[in-house]
Design a protein around this nucleic acid. Structure first.
Lengths: 256, 256
DNA sequence: CATGTGACTTTGTCCTGACAAAGTATTGAC
DNA sequence: GTCAATACTTTGTCAGGACAAAGTCACATG
């Protein structure tokens, strides 16, 4: 027979105590959140189960209620937990559903082991054309680096990419661009893209485009134009890209 | 000559006092955030300006520092403000860049005054095909409502839409679907979509599709398949849609 | 048996107070 | 003048307490 504490609903899952390091520079709420996330991903706290109430949880883990709330909130925002007033906190997903990654094609391909390769067909410093200047929010005629790349994956052509980067944001070197993706270069320079506006459409390929991509004339292409900003709100990149629809599609997870 | 208070950096923008209603059910932090957002959008607090420090701001608006912080944090998450420890809080965007709206095509068209109309070409209750069951995360053969719609905007055909909704999530009536968008129906039933996974691609139209959409054979089409979940993590909708690329593109704003 | 009323649980909001960490500006030594 | 040490400003983290609001459940009442 198992004793049941009076005056409290029994939770489905008990979170084991968490070793906290108060001397660490990592904030307490983050230590708690990370540990909780691990437990959920490893199945220690099963999907669908209800957690203890936050007051008790805070007490047992040895943190204040605001800190415990902040840790839980963090996982709620990432889609792992759901809370309801008067009810409790429940696990709804074993894994984090990321809102959308702001990553470059190169990173994505490299991560999935598809051996990205880049052919730089053009690279020049020039005044920004009007539509580019407008997209970047800079004065017309401002100096930008303009380049065109042909991106291969697994040895096959995949995309034609046109980009503009303001010269005062980053000086682009041909050699760097051949080895690494644009976003990696931006990140390395401390101009981390944080926000982006994308328009995704489709059209059929012209003869020249089809030839470059190894498709037939009139083949369907995915088009994507994007402006990206860093955390201080400064535009760091404008891109206008063409993808072979037969070999590429965009996947995105989004939350309200 | 203008006096400068000693012991504090002068801000670029002064937030006027905000009328607060402490009897309202609307939380204080939200009242403050909403008002601040208005001020930024209307230009009362210019883009690029630095706000007063949060301690002073809280004092002057008559709320506690945590409440003020929460209001500011809300706008930081929406991409309007940027904060740096030791520096301050700065306005970076005049308008809210919503992460991405989780709205239906119908809502979007109605909002922009493009007179959406829907022709229901099929509606039946049937067991879920395997790929649909998998996308929804339900048992194969579970009962769903399956329907095909042709969507018009401004009198022109725009999209062919196929959808599946589990019958225990919502009973779909033909009449409702003709007058209102699917997402509006879901919301009205309390099954608010909160998270979605979308895959966007492109292909050329078959003869039948081209005929329905008023395009030529081989015209480029945007394809989109989506699964949407409500806040409790339950799948509420699966959709597989075809858009005329000549008349439609996806725009999305995303943050890391 | 249905039903609504009230006790109770649980999360949401709000407050005060304190110290730490990161940046900026000033000052002083060389 | 240059550079390092120092003072100061500003946001970040953490604690503890109090009350409100929403949901659940048992129980009394019709």
């Amino acid at each position: 027979m198992r004793g049941v504490a009076v005056g409290e609903r029994t939770p489905d899952a008990v979170v084991p105590e968490v070793p906290l390091d108060r001397t660490s520079p990592v904030p307490l709420y983050f230590q708690v959140a990370t540990r909780l996330q691990q437990l959920i991903e490893d199945g220690g706290v099963p999907v669908g189960s209800r957690l203890e109430n936050e007051v008790e949880l805070a007490e047992r883990l040895g943190v204040s209620r605001p800190t415990m709330r902040r840790a839980i909130q963090y996982l709620v925002e990432r889609g792992m937990l759901v809370r309801k007033r008067g009810v409790g906190t429940q696990v709804v997903h074993p894994k984090v559903r990321r809102p959308v990654e702001l990553s470059s094609l190169y990173d994505d391909l490299a991560k999935t082991g598809r051996d990205p390769r880049t052919e730089i067909r053009l690279l020049e410093v020039r005044p920004a054309p009007d539509h580019v200047a407008e997209a970047l929010g800079v004065a017309p005629g401002s100096e930008i680096t303009w380049f065109e790349r042909l991106r291969y994956a697994s040895g096959e052509p995949l995309a034609i990419m046109h980009n503009a980067v303001p010269t005062d944001v980053l000086a682009i070197e041909r050699a760097d661009l051949e080895r690494r993706g644009l976003y990696e270069l931006l990140r390395a320079a401390g101009r981390v893209p944080r926000m982006a506006n994308q328009v995704v459409g489709a059209r059929t390929a012209t003869g020249a485009e089809a030839r470059l991509l190894g498709e037939g004339r009139g083949a369907p292409l995915l088009t994507m134009t994007r402006t990206a900003w860093d955390e201080s709100g400064r535009a760091v990149e404008y891109g206008s890209h063409l993808y072979r629809a037969s070999r590429y599609s965009f996947e995105l997870t989004l939350t309200i």
